[in-house]
Amino acid sequence: MEKEIAIRIEGISKKFGNLEALKNISFFVKRGECFGLVGPNGAGKTTLLNILMGFSIPDKGFFEVNGKRAKDTRAIKREIGFIAQDEILDEELTTFQNLYFHGLYYDLPKREAKKRAEELLNFFGLTRKDEQVKNLSGGMKKKLAIAKALIHNPEILIMDEPTIGLDPRSRTVIWDTISALSKSGKTVLLTTHYMDEAEKLCERVAILNRGEIIDIGEPRKLISTHLPPAVLEVKVDTEEERREILNYITRHSVEHRISGNIFILYPKNLDSTRGEILLLGIENITKRNSNLEDLFLKLTGRGLRDETL
């Protein structure tokens, strides 16, 4: 049973001054699984990854990675390929040198490091091996960061917001890469505040809010437990429309969330509610399947991207 678990985290707490960044976090990641830590900025996702990598020491709790104990940071790092949000490429080195040196840091012999670096450059289509890293595009940099994490062929990959700041095309490419790595048997732990990303890639997710885990499970199951299968999304354009919809919601006591000028309704009878709202003269209304974003809103009362809520 133990062998089935790649990462085990138990009771981790961390304070920065008065801020409780992590409160008693426990979960495990199964071998070969793609696991998502989902939550808005400031939920504590990066803090947790920093703890796993030894960049930050927890106040309480312990963790194991492939059976290696928390204290042995050096051994833990060998088990992991880590892709941080930024600052993990060496800007003073070329693309090839980035990979080559990373191989040396993992004690690969020089010949082996060179071979691995060249293989990975080819695999990721990074053909200009003598390019200075600072001249690469965002998508290329991310690819290089992933290549770097693979240099020592680790079983476990940890990625902090793998597609943040990327254009839609690069995003798809990175998603395909992560899927392929996951299918090839790698264990993946990723953090994201993009719900579509988590739903697309992750077999299980933990929903993290203000340093606490609210729920853990398969995305579809979590959604069906907490939400009806579909929701209505109403976009209001004027103050008058806003008043009208608020009025309607109170009168019929419809369960709802508000995110800026978008109202998300979880009515009992979806189609009749839709018809009634259309009659109010509000036309911008769509029916769609419930997703993790709704779930997050429902569980935490705030949006993932909307910090003001």
């Binding site: 600052e87 800007e91 993992y106």
Partner: peptide, 14 residues
């Protein structure tokens, strides 16, 4: 400045 240390410390460099 460049935070080069990060690119080292994600590897088993202490």
């Amino acid at each position: 400045g460049r935070k080069t240390y990060r690119s080292l410390l994600i590897a088993p460099i202490m």
